[in-house]
């Protein structure tokens, strides 16, 4: 299969890659760009572990072709912390023990950030529905919800 060159921006930096036309953005990020923070839990958009934003929109990178990223801005978990400081969501996940095995954590953090960017003060119900596409099998979600609420509070007061 003939590969295609793609120019894009990943976490604010210009990035170029080549990929096969049927290669997913998730495979490109993981196998070609060395960004293994996005995980493949299902490959069918049912678990959210591969969540990234594409032009600011939360998507499953397993449901995006790499070639579709031409000219787009992609943000991944690797871009969430700035410099040597964690994002408030990341710190809240550690402080509130919102992860156990941690495999869903990158996707949930990316998804939660997309929500708080849009709605800084979501209700618990809004939060639970927004995150319904991010499966977590360890925590029962409770501490995840508490952590996002705590981070949202902190970000609102900052």
């Amino acid at each position: 299969m003939k590969t295609v060159p793609v120019s894009t921006t990943i976490n604010g930096d210009a990035a170029e890659f080549i990929c096969a036309p049927d290669e997913t953005l998730l495979d490109v990020l993981r196998n070609r760009m060395g960004l293994t923070g996005a995980k493949e839990g299902c490959g069918t958009g049912d678990c959210g572990a591969c969540s990234v934003t594409l032009d600011g929109r939360l998507v499953c990178s397993c449901l995006v072709l790499g070639v579709e990223a031409e000219g787009a801005e992609i943000a991944t978990i690797e871009g969430l912390a700035t410099g040597d400081g964690l994002h408030p969501l990341q710190q809240a996940f550690i402080d509130h023990a919102a992860l156990q095995c941690g495999i869903c954590t990158p996707g949930i953090l990316v998804a939660a950030k997309a929500l708080l960017d849009k709605n800084p003060d979501p209700s618990e119900t809004e939060l639970r529905y927004w995150l319904a596409g991010n499966l977590c099998r360890c925590t029962g979600y409770d501490k995840i919800i508490r952590a996002v609420q705590a981070a949202a509070r902190q970000m609102r007061s900052a």
């Binding site: 594409l54 929109r57 939360l58 998507v59 499953c60 449901l63 596409g133």
Partner: peptide, 9 residues
């Protein structure tokens, strides 16, 4: 249809 992520597309 689908999740928040799916709604994005």
């Amino acid at each position: 249809i689908g999740s928040t992520q799916v709604q994005g597309r």
